[in-house]
Amino acid sequence: MDPVSAGTRPITVALVDDYDVVVMGVANILDHYRDRVVIAELDTNEPLEDPVDVVLYDSFAQPESDHDEIAALVGNPRARRVVVYTWNFHPDLIRHAQQKGAHGYLSKALSAAQLVDALEAVHAGERVFSEPPGRARPASGLNWPGRSEGLTDRESEILALITQGKSNAEIARLTYLSPNTIKSYIRTVYRKIGVDSRTQAVVWGVRRGFLPDHHRIEHWKGGP
């Protein structure tokens, strides 16, 4: 049942990621459902400030084997529920998220309507874990650094990790991809952005927003 017709308020959501463009993209797709979900806070490398019903933690270009951020959010009294939003469904990542207390593990292949349904279910007390998707395209409206230059979400994530100074071995470990797969992604990225070396790729990335931001946008479009 629609929460408005049921006489309940929309749930409040904080979006957490290292990159402004990522949280802004998620906020925009959810803005069509403001009668059910209201974005109360957008945080990039800033601690959660306001009490919210659900924190949606986007894993873009964050060390996916480092679960300190999930544990910190789960332990934050301002976050009533914590949900991981990702395209990486390696079984170890799902298990670690569960062990850290995440209330949901949602695929970026979900449509906006499906995402809202899942957030409402989590808010109602359910634990919602998406089925591992195929390599489906992310939900319409999502954004990431490099998308306008033709980079896919995963290619952009690899380039972001390169820009952060990660080695191929570290990137493979963090993303649960094989070293050969990482090398293949890097060759494709270099070709797409027109560079021949790691140094050139880092410079390209720095100039185009591939380093984490430190910012907060509060009260998205007049929300609470």
Rank of each mutant, 00 (worst) to 15 (best):
E41P: 05
E41I: 05
E41G: 09
E41V: 03
E41Q: 13
L42T: 05
D43F: 04
D43L: 15
D43E: 15
T44S: 14
T44C: 15
T44K: 01
N45T: 07
N45H: 07
E46F: 11
E46G: 02
E46C: 10
P47V: 11
P47F: 12
P47C: 09
P47M: 11
P47L: 13
L48C: 03
L48I: 15
L48Q: 03
L48M: 06
L48R: 00
L48T: 01
L48D: 04
E49R: 12
E49Y: 13
E49V: 11
E49P: 00
D50W: 11
D50T: 12
D50Q: 13
D50K: 12
D50C: 10
D50H: 11
P51K: 01
P51H: 02
P51T: 03
P51Q: 06
V52I: 09
V52W: 06
V52F: 10
V52Y: 08
D53E: 14
D53Y: 03
D53Q: 06
D53K: 01
V54I: 10
V54H: 03
V54F: 07
V54N: 04
V54C: 10
V55F: 04
V55A: 14
V55S: 05
V55T: 04
L56N: 12
L56T: 08
L56D: 15
L56W: 12
L56F: 09
Y57R: 04
Y57F: 14
D58Y: 02
D58L: 03
D58T: 02
S59P: 00
S59T: 14
S59V: 06
S59R: 12
S59G: 00
S59M: 13
F60S: 00
A61M: 03
A61K: 00
A61G: 02
Q62H: 08
Q62E: 14
P63N: 13
P63H: 08
P63W: 06
P63M: 11
P63T: 01
P63F: 04
P63S: 08
E64F: 03
E64I: 06
E64G: 06
E64N: 07
S65Q: 10
S65C: 07
D66Q: 07
D66K: 11
D66V: 02
H67Q: 06
H67A: 09
H67I: 04
D68T: 12
D68L: 08
D68N: 09
D68E: 15
E69T: 08
E69G: 00
E69A: 10
E69Q: 12
E69V: 07
E69R: 13
I70T: 06
I70Y: 02
I70Q: 02
A71N: 00
A71V: 03
A71E: 12
A72W: 07
A72Y: 05
L73R: 00
L73E: 10
L73Q: 03
L73K: 00
L73D: 06
V74Q: 01
V74D: 04
V74A: 04
V74K: 01
V74I: 09
G75D: 11
G75W: 08
G75Q: 02
N76H: 04
N76A: 11
N76E: 14
N76D: 15
P77H: 09
P77D: 14
P77E: 14
R78F: 14
R78Y: 13
A79C: 07
A79F: 08
A79S: 04
R80Y: 03
R80E: 15
R80F: 02
